[in-house]
Design a protein around this nucleic acid. Structure first.
Lengths: 203, 203
DNA sequence: AATGAGCTGGACTATTGAGTCCATTTTTCG
DNA sequence: CGAAAAATGGACTCAATAGTCCAGCTCATT
């Protein structure tokens, strides 16, 4: 989202955004603008031409990702058995949390939270809040259909999301390395869905 | 843990540590040393006499708390019914996460993670890791006693901790305000324990 | 070819904050 | 009491970094 709309090179805007996400995500928000410029293969002035300040650059990074975050969280297609749908939810959430992109985005937002509370809130709404809401809607619907017996869908959604994400999110923030292999993701999502069914099944 | 051991005033050491925890916890790690000095009612030079640098001061804050964190996570006394013990675990974990002290400690550690990975790791071990381990031990033991049917205690412990903590930890880091009333804590802990029993009960 | 918008690179300013210095005062303790 | 240790406070140095400036360069369009 360049500030000046003339012959500005859109490809450069992207390159800057990518480089900034990379640099700020790994090195922290205090990483210098010069390094971003170097990484993007662009002069510092150009960054300031495209985005007006470091804060706006950070905002642009998060804004771009925020749109992508909510996308995969669409309610999964109604399956025969809700357990499959739950596992699908779990898989998507775990991937969001474990992938480097989701990680660095969260780290950035947490670091920025003190100075840019609105940004932190927007991220919270788009990520954690939206995922819980969609999940709660699904649980409500399945309960109405008689396939689950969930009395408090919001709480249950929080429980399930917590089971799946577990300690992984905070470990990522603390830089404690963790496996993100697809098999692990699949296993955790499946098992969480299975246990959730026992906890909230109709039997 | 003053660096120079002469006639140094221990009370001042504490005052500095308290002020630093307060200032750095609320304002972020970039809060200036001058403000800490002001808040502690002490000259800046005195801080440097007691702790050699800002990094060491941060370390001292975290080290002090790390010892306190693990303390309440002692295995609860064996109850008649494991559900009560689980609820107790949940209550303690939630309190750690929701109290301002635990919050600011986590925030500080996350912010410092880039520059002081060893500190982040120590915090991770003392907090999240220890709590899961103790919980897993408890589950193992209850399974041996025939009161639970947990096949993978580590995973189950992670599930339970995740249910209880849920979205609250990340919300705290993002500065999205949340209730920490005792009734809420109690209700969540009880319900999580109840659902966990259904998911992992012997029946 | 000429134009002009955007880009480069590197020097420059201004600010902020860690850590030091030091002359003076206060506290501790033999 | 008197000396040594510690604390004060305020000025100081030094490094890092956001953001600006500018002279010369690139390149698409006409």
């Amino acid at each position: 989202m360049p500030r000046i709309v003339g012959q500005i090179d859109q490809a450069k805007s992207q390159a800057i955004l990518d480089a900034a996400a990379e640099v700020l995500g790994t090195g922290g928000l205090s990483a210098p603008m010069d390094e971003i410029a170097r990484r993007a293969g662009v002069s510092k002035q150009t960054i300031y031409n495209h985005y007006g300040s470091k804060a706006e650059l950070i905002r642009a990074i998060v804004d771009r990702r925020v749109e992508e975050i909510a996308a995969p969280l669409l309610a999964p297609g109604a399956q025969d058995h809700p357990q499959e749908a739950l596992a699908g939810f779990g898989r998507v959430m775990l991937e969001l949390v474990l992938r480097p992109l989701g990680r660095s985005m969260l780290k950035m937002t947490v670091q920025a939270a003190d100075d840019m509370p609105d940004l932190a809130r927007a991220f919270y709404e788009a990520g954690p809040r939206t995922s819980r809401r969609r999940l709660a809607d699904f649980l409500r619907q399945e309960t109405l259909a008689g396939r689950l017996a969930v009395d408090d869908p919001d709480q249950a959604a929080d429980f399930f999301a917590g089971m799946v994400i577990g300690v992984r999110q905070i470990a990522g923030l603390l830089g404690v390395e963790q496996a993100a292999e697809p098999e692990v993701i699949e296993r955790v999502a499946q098992e969480a869905a299975r246990r959730f069914m026992r906890a909230y099944g109709i039997d």
